[in-house]
């Protein structure tokens, strides 16, 4: 696994014409499906990676999300929210199912951990170590707190959108985010 010597912010996902593309997917057009799948697979993989800490499982989850995108395209209502929100909501439910099947004993993926802790240029060594520590502490948080932090910060969703993914009202989401932030900060401090 290569680690680039550059850290960047999340790119904005282009959304123009997604409702029209979804209508074409609902009509069975594979080309429209491929376009949407290629657009949404990378952020969904990042989300599933963070939630599951297991690359193979994350890939299975995203495949399932894309399959549902194909089968249930007719149900998508652009008036009710972005396609990314809808897809993340499906991914969240699938991740939650898997996490609950695993129980409390989270098998962290060696490859996923190595990606965060891999050797890097000297100027990135400290950041890499912090990222590795963050990944470990984040994985130890309750799943909903981890999801709230991941959606809000890593996936750069606004509060209402992240709340919709987790099927929470906005007040409950802010409360969850507050608890997650406090718990993560305490863990990072070694409290």
């Amino acid at each position: 696994m290569g680690v680039t010597a550059e850290w960047v912010s999340a790119p904005a996902v282009p959304e123009a014409g997604e409702a029209a593309l979804m209508a074409r997917v609902a009509a069975g057009e594979e080309a429209a499906f491929r376009l949407l799948a290629e657009r949404h697979a990378p952020p969904l993989l990042r989300f599933a990676d963070r939630m599951l800490r297991n690359r193979a499982e994350a890939e299975e989850v995203v495949q399932e999300v894309l399959w549902r995108l194909w089968r249930q395209a007719g149900r998508f209502d652009a008036e009710r929210g972005r396609l990314a929100t809808w897809l993340h909501a499906i991914a969240w439910r699938l991740c939650l199912d898997r996490l609950r099947r695993r129980g409390a004993d989270l098998p962290l993926d060696a490859a996923a951990e190595a990606r965060d802790a891999a050797p890097s240029p000297l100027d990135l060594a400290s950041r890499q170590a912090e990222m590795a520590a963050l990944a470990v502490h984040l994985a130890a948080l309750p799943e909903r707190q981890r999801a709230a932090l991941t959606l809000f910060y890593h996936q750069e969703m606004e509060g209402p959108e992240a709340a919709a993914v987790l099927r929470l009202d906005l007040r409950a989401f802010w409360s969850l985010l507050r608890r997650g932030r406090a718990a993560l900060r305490a863990r990072m401090r070694g409290d």
């Binding site: 696994m1 290569g2 680690v3 912010s9 990378p42 912090e130 750069e156």
Partner: peptide, 15 residues
Amino acid sequence: LEALLRTRPAETAED
């Protein structure tokens, strides 16, 4: 901490 949470590696060819 929040900056770390927002940070992610640049997309690689493998990604």
